Simulated assay, not measured.
Amino acid sequence: MHYLLFLHIVEAVEAYDAYFQQKPDTLENLGLLFIQKYTTAICQLTYGMPANAIDKYVQIAKTIAIKNLKCFC
């Protein structure tokens, strides 16, 4: 996928769903980047990667990777 097309899709998903926006938690620490959340969903859909394999690739827990996929779909 061309990089500019990828960024265009990422921006559209972020604008559509507030879940994919980066927000601070209660301690004012920023959460995951929207591109990390998007990448986990795309890897699972495109390559059929299991959620626990995403942990090593994007450094996101298995449960968060599953939640990202559900929100993306």
Rank of each mutant, 00 (worst) to 15 (best):
E28M: 09
C73Q: 15
L30F: 11
I64T: 14
Q36D: 15
T39R: 06
K56P: 03
L33H: 10
M1E: 14
L5V: 09
V58H: 01
F6E: 11
E11Q: 10
K70R: 05
P50S: 15
A41N: 01
Q59N: 14
D25E: 02
N52D: 15
A15H: 09
K70L: 09
Y19F: 13
K67H: 09
N68K: 00
E28P: 01
I35C: 09
I64R: 01
D55R: 07
E11T: 10
T63E: 14
Y57M: 12
N52V: 06
P24T: 02
N52Q: 07
Y3R: 04
A51G: 02
V10I: 14
L45R: 04
L4I: 05
P50I: 13
I54Y: 02
I54R: 01
I60H: 01
Y38A: 12
A15P: 01
V58A: 06
I54E: 06
L4A: 09
Q22N: 03
I54K: 00
F6L: 06
C43L: 15
D17T: 00
L32R: 00
F72W: 07
E14W: 02
C73S: 13
K62M: 11
I64Q: 11
Y38M: 12
Q36C: 04
L27N: 13
L5K: 04
I42R: 03
E14C: 09
M49Q: 05
N29G: 02
N29I: 12
N52H: 08
E28K: 05
L32E: 07
C43N: 10
G48Y: 06
D55Q: 14
A15Q: 08
L45N: 04
K67Y: 05
F20I: 07
I64W: 02
A65N: 04
I9R: 08
Q44V: 11
A15D: 15
A51F: 08
A61D: 15
T26H: 09
Y19R: 01
D55Y: 08
P50V: 13
D17F: 00
K56W: 14
A18P: 06
E28A: 11
E11D: 14
K56G: 15
K23L: 05
A41P: 00
D25K: 00
A15G: 04
K62R: 12
K37P: 06
Y19T: 04
Q36K: 08
F6Y: 11
L33I: 03
A18R: 07
A18F: 05
Q44D: 05
K62F: 10
K56V: 15
N29S: 12
N52I: 09
K37Y: 06
G31F: 03
L69K: 02
I60S: 11
G48F: 07
F6H: 05
L33S: 13
L5G: 06
V10K: 07
D17Y: 00
L33M: 10
Y16A: 13
A61H: 11
C71Q: 13
E28N: 12
H2T: 09
Y57W: 06
T46K: 03
K23N: 03
T63R: 05
A41I: 00
K56Y: 15
L32Y: 08
G48I: 06
Y3N: 07
Y19G: 03
A65Y: 03
L33K: 08
K67N: 10
E11F: 05
V58W: 03
F6R: 05
Q21T: 10
Y57S: 13
A61L: 09
V10S: 12
A18I: 12
P50L: 10
Y19E: 09
Y47S: 06
E28F: 05
